[in-house]
């Protein structure tokens, strides 16, 4: 059975994520309201502005349903702003006055860690989880992971050791944007995680009829 993937579509580059999924033959679903989460196997939180996305999650009642989605063991992947929204904490220097977080991923992130837009960059990263060939990574006013909790595994680092991708069980965070490069290996890997989560899901999910 193909995994059913949703992309949080409150603000940001959710169309780019949907396009990546479409290239893999997966019809992703825009998630704008709590009902849109029903029957999904995985959820992507896109790049965008974390203060905006966080506020809209709060405003439209998506916080508790997304926390429930994670508790059910369904994978969630946040790219850039999406990783910030997933995080437990934003370091005080880079936190907005009001910053709504989901607090799922046990990390402290530093927003906009490289400086103004002219410091945005592209580079190649080794990410063994995704494949042996390096991944082209685009960092746009990007965050970094400043502190990792004990259950959090680094997936990718910059040459200076800075952690820019993490995994905590079925939660993934990347500071960069695989959806902007046309290289869909990260999305394919996430879909495999979502598919695997169906197999070991709670009984009521496993019983639902196949499509």
């Amino acid at each position: 059975m193909e995994a059913r993937i949703g992309v949080l579509a409150l603000q940001g580059d959710f169309q780019e994520h949907l396009a990546s999924l479409a290239r893999l033959g997966i019809a992703g679903r825009e998630v704008k309201l709590p009902d849109d989460l029903v029957d999904l196997d995985g959820l992507i939180l896109p790049g965008g502005e974390s203060t905006t996305i966080g506020r809209l999650i709060h405003r439209f009642g998506l916080r508790e349903p997304i926390l429930e989605f994670a508790r059910a063991g369904r994978p969630i992947w946040g790219t850039c702003a999406g990783m910030i929204v997933l995080a437990r904490e934003v370091d005080p220097e880079t936190r907005a006055r009001t910053q709504h977080l989901l607090g799922l991923l046990d990390v402290v992130v530093r927003r906009n860690a490289f400086g103004p837009q002219i410091e945005s960059f592209e580079t190649e990263l080794e990410i063994p989880a995704v494949g042996s060939e390096p991944v082209r990574a685009v960092f746009i006013r990007a965050p970094v992971v400043a502190e990792l909790g004990p259950a959090v595994e680094p997936l990718a680092r910059l040459p200076d050791g800075t952690v820019v991708a993490v995994r905590q069980d079925n939660l993934i965070g990347t500071a960069f944007h695989p959806e902007l490069t046309g290289d869909d290996r990260f999305h394919a890997w996430f879909c495999r995680l979502a598919r695997a989560s169906i197999a070991c899901a709670l009984p009521e999910r496993a019983r639902r009829p196949a499509q």
Partner: peptide, 20 residues
């Protein structure tokens, strides 16, 4: 590492999509 590429320039605008 390449800074200020066309991808990063267009990319910031992509991050602003659906926004005000």
């Amino acid at each position: 590492m390449e800074k200020s590429t066309w991808t990063t320039k267009v990319g910031l605008a992509q991050m602003l999509k659906g926004g005000v």
